[in-house]
């Protein structure tokens, strides 16, 4: 039998309404894995349904010589190029941005729990700045502020646009990973710190040998969640002219004479390919989250 709660799912027994207090860490807290949870909930046949829907799109009545079927033929011919030179670049950008973001974010997150107030304050300020800045603004700053090549003596190191995009995207990721690390360390009961201190462990030893190994498992699901979010954010780079899937999709449509019939197939293809990449990640994230959940 389901317990009914008066005022919530049955008629209130009294007109003195009672609100649950807002607890940012309790059951009313926003879900950190919202994106992955939503995506993982979609049934396994979603990608197929999505593909079917795109193909079943009403044959554009306005088309004259150039039919919707022609548009799909065009898409099929462009697909290898769009995947090889476009989507793989999105994956590459997300991969390196995640790598840099994780390394810097971990350092920053540990800085946030430092005993040194200066380090702690600095790490906190950096984290909050980048966590709360619009991604596109960060991208613009990095892309315009960085040189296109670095000359050291006679050696010329070119800095391509996509590498700048990696740096630009790694900044918000860094800040969010920093919060994940901080949160994971704090989530370990303080009694463990006291217990290890009584066993004569130093603070560094406690952190590396006792606390962090337990944190690692807890950090994996939110870390993967951020990877999915980052991957879906990579098309932002197209606004800055970085050659990735969306930029090349536009150029491909131009190369195919800009028939408006191309819009739905080409953009749907971009949607589908991102979904196919992120969906398994989301499902795995939620599975790992369940497995690593603290069971009471």
């Amino acid at each position: 039998m389901i317990r009914r709660i008066p005022g919530l799912d049955t008629k209130a027994a009294t007109d003195l309404a009672v609100l649950h207090p807002f607890d940012p860490n309790g059951s009313t807290a926003p879900d950190g894995l919202l994106v992955s949870r939503w995506m993982a909930k979609l049934p396994l046949w979603t990608p197929l349904a999505l593909a079917a829907l795109i193909f079943a799109w009403p044959m554009a009545a306005l088309a004259q010589n150039f039919t919707y079927g022609d548009a799909f033929d065009t898409l099929l011919r462009w697909m290898p190029f769009l995947i090889k030179s476009g989507f793989l670049f999105n994956v590459l950008i997300s991969f390196f941005a995640m790598l840099i973001g994780t390394l810097l974010g971990t350092a920053l997150g540990l800085g946030q729990i430092s005993l040194n107030p200066v380090v702690r304050w600095f790490a906190w300020a950096v984290t909050q700045t980048f966590r709360n800045s619009p991604w596109l603004v960060l991208l613009f700053i990095v892309l315009l502020a960085f040189p296109f090549e670095i000359v050291i003596g006679t050696v010329i190191i070119p800095v391509p646009d996509w590498m700048k995009a990696v740096v630009g995207l790694s900044l918000p990721v860094m800040a969010n990973i920093s919060e994940i690390v901080r949160g994971a360390v704090i989530s370990v009961p303080t009694a463990q710190w006291e217990a290890s201190e009584s066993l004569a462990f130093s603070r560094t030893q406690t952190l590396w040998r006792i606390i962090l190994p337990q944190c690692f498992k807890r950090m994996i699901p939110p870390w993967m969640n951020w990877y999915a979010i980052l991957t879906m954010a990579t098309p932002l780079c197209s606004l800055l002219g970085v050659e990735e899937l969306l930029t090349l999709t536009r150029q491909a449509m131009e190369g195919a004479d800009n028939h408006p019939e191309l819009l739905v197939p080409f953009y749907s293809f971009a949607l589908l390919i991102f979904f196919l990449y992120c969906y398994p990640i989301a499902r795995l994230t939620i599975r790992l989250e369940r497995r690593f959940m603290v069971k009471l």
Binding site: R77, W78, F81, L248, R250, Q251, A252, E254, G255
Partner: peptide
């Protein structure tokens, strides 16, 4: 790379 036929991508 987006101005056919002066400059564009082939397949």
């Amino acid at each position: 790379a987006d101005y056919k036929p002066w400059g564009f991508r082939n397949e």
